[in-house]
Amino acid sequence: MNVFRLVGDLSHLLAIIMLLKKIWSSRSCAGISGKSQLLFALVFTTRYLDLFTSFISVYNTSMKVIYILCAYATVYLIYVKFKATYDHNHDTFRAEFLVVPVGGLAFLVNHDFTPLEILWTFSIYLESVAIMPQLFMISKTGEAESITSHYLFCLGGYRALYIINWLYRFYSEGFFDLIAIVAGCVQTILYCDFFYLYITKVIYGQKLSLPA
């Protein structure tokens, strides 16, 4: 464990909790893509099946459990409790266009052709594109509330910190996991455009809206 990974994990956790709290306190999930949140729940479920097979640390286990619980709580709030506020007319990204190719790729390119390893690989590939329905929704409506922007910034920050973590681990331990690194870089690139808008607009106190 190094500081980049720890801060990355905490940034990820902050993003997840911030979103949950926003939905809970505003009693609304307007502007949030339920599809992205469903995909994240699927990501955590397929990745953390190793909770049953290997123990790494108390930290590792508790974070996994918290991520899974929060992901399902978010999905529950969007699709059940505050369903009436869910903006499904704007959440039109076809999630199957992500899940199916990613599933195929996980079968073809993986470290080991075993069920658990294929599911882990699937979750890594899926995580890299799971935010696309949310970004698509923002591009459709043309704006995002500032709290949604903070959420995305923390998620993107988590990815960027993981890249630094991989560089650090490569030089200090000789460790690298090519699948995680390539997927992680793809994921970070998806946030670049958003980062630019965030820095130029949200930080200066404006609502994030796209140039007309």
């Binding site: 190793d50 790494i56 996994k64 470290h111 882990w120 973590n165 460790f175 690298f176």
Partner: peptide, 10 residues
């Protein structure tokens, strides 16, 4: 080289 036996990252 990576150790893919156990994935220790979240």
């Amino acid at each position: 080289s990576g150790d893919y036996e156990v994935h220790d990252e979240l």
